[in-house]
């Protein structure tokens, strides 16, 4: 093969390599989420109430315990499951009983959910039960929101702020 043909051939090989690299480095574009929708995202990490409840230790009981170990309230280690429900425009989109994490079931429940909705006005209702009550919820909140196209509307659960927090 003539030298110039070899150089041409080598150049073609390099061209093929950079064409593959240059193309797959950013194409084809990937459409991840519809442009005309928004996302309602619910995230929580919360410990249910202790299973079996708590009791107050008597003074005699506390006396038998080392001073640095004394706790007036004595609770069982295991936590209760947590019930979470979410309704959007009167349609129940989430109803889940979350089990406590950990081998001893003493960890918090965790939830991270995203629900895609059409852009526009939506009525959102949220409810959470973390106690051993048979009916009803310990935390509830309702709101009406205008979801913009592409908006990431975040709902967190913060009991220290009264329950569900909208962002």
């Amino acid at each position: 093969m003539r030298p110039y043909a070899r150089y041409l051939g080598q150049g073609s090989v390099y061209l093929v390599i950079v064409a593959i690299v240059g193309t797959l480095a950013d194409t084809p574009a990937y459409r991840n989420f519809p442009e005309d929708q928004g996302m309602i995202r619910l995230t929580l990490s919360h410990g249910g109430k202790p299973k079996g409840g708590c009791r107050t230790q008597s003074a005699e009981e506390l006396e038998k315990i080392a001073p640095n170990m004394r706790r007036k309230r004595l609770c069982s280690r295991e936590r209760l499951p947590v019930l979470v429900e979410m309704t959007i425009d009167d349609r129940r989109v989430l109803s889940r009983v979350l089990q406590p994490t950990g081998i001893r079931k003493d960890g918090p429940v965790r939830l991270y959910e995203g629900i895609a909705v059409a852009a526009g006005r939506h009525r959102i209702s949220l409810a959470l039960r973390d106690s051993d009550r048979a009916k009803g919820f310990d935390y509830e909140r309702r709101t009406v929101v205008d979801i913009r196209p592409g908006q990431n509307f975040v709902i967190r659960f913060r009991p220290e702020f009264g329950g569900f927090v909208f962002k």
């Binding site: 480095a25 459409r31 991840n32």
Partner: peptide, 28 residues
């Protein structure tokens, strides 16, 4: 040569309050 002909560029800055709808993935 590829770097000069087709420089690597960024997308728009991240904005966690909005969803990412379309991205130019590096398929590798």
């Amino acid at each position: 040569a590829l770097s000069l002909v087709k420089p690597a560029v960024s997308h728009a800055p991240a904005d966690l309050s909005t969803m990412v709808t379309s991205v130019n993935l590096d398929w590798f």
